[in-house]
């Protein structure tokens, strides 16, 4: 209990003193997670909607692959990405291992199936109903897409929240491909792991608390957009 209490005090001290090392790892973590989330969301949501809205051969197999990849062990993902980008690997000439770029690639690959899988589940039959409704009311492609986003919003935000949570808390893949290099590829999770190894438990707990607070703040923001318009007491984009 002492370690956790001291960790809490240490967390407040680190925040108040603008500890350079901690702020660097926080920024690296947020940067890697948000860029991965943007790429995976930008690709995964349209792809998920496309898969959910069409019937085609091998759809069942594709769905099973996506659901399997949703539970992909991060270390395995990190290992595969590492091998691809290692000097002797197929993309070794790019020299991306131990850079933030390769960490983003690994995290994107981890987040993408999660976003796609949840989007497919969320879209389901509702997507077809909404598309039909938009068509019968004379909506164009953009208006249909807008209505679709509005109607599927809770599910899509759940997909983004899950993607963010996976990304921000991930340690295995970024440790393998990023290498936890101070000032370059060190994230909050890899830093915690290192601090634990060095026996600096109070500081490790403090960074963990900062990680949880940040995660709570981002999830709260996303949850705010997930609520129905009336209960949130604000105007919807669709009606502006």
């Amino acid at each position: 209990m002492d370690i956790i209490a001291e960790g809490l005090v240490e967390a407040l001290r680190l925040i108040a003193s603008f500890d350079r090392e901690v702020f660097e790892v926080v920024l690296t973590s947020l940067y890697v997670t948000f860029v991965s989330l943007a790429i995976a969301g930008g690709a995964g949501i349209p792809a998920g909607l496309l898969i959910a809205g069409h019937r085609f051969r091998m759809k069942g197999i594709l769905m099973r692959v996506i659901y399997t990849l949703m539970g992909m062990p991060p270390v395995l993902c990190g290992l595969i990405v590492y091998v691809v980008f290692m000097r002797r690997g197929p993309l070794g000439s790019l020299s991306l291992n131990y850079t933030v770029t390769v960490m983003i690639i690994a995290q994107t690959l981890l987040i993408l199936p999660i976003i796609m899988g949840i989007t497919i589940s969320a879209a389901g039959e509702r997507q077809e109903q909404v598309r039909k409704l938009a068509r019968t009311l004379g909506a164009g492609k953009r208006q249909t897409a807008g209505l679709l986003m509005h109607e599927l919003k809770p599910g899509l935000i759940t997909a983004l929240v899950s993607g963010f949570s996976r990304g921000i808390s991930e340690v295995g893949a970024v440790m393998i491909v990023g290498g936890n290099i101070e000032g370059r590829t060190r994230t909050m999770t890899t830093y915690i792991s290192q601090l634990k190894g060095m026996g600096e438990f109070e500081r490790a707990v403090a960074v963990g608390i900062i990680l949880l607070v940040l995660s709570f703040a981002v999830n709260s923001l996303l949850y705010h957009f997930q609520k129905p318009p009336e209960s949130a007491g604000r105007k919807e984009m669709l009606w502006k």
Partner: peptide
């Protein structure tokens, strides 16, 4: 499409008020 419409037996409602 712009000049016709269809009302389904089980209509799909937009998640908003009747007015909207």
């Amino acid at each position: 499409f712009q000049q016709m419409t269809m009302v389904f037996q089980k209509p799909c409602m937009i998640s908003a008020t009747v007015r909207k």
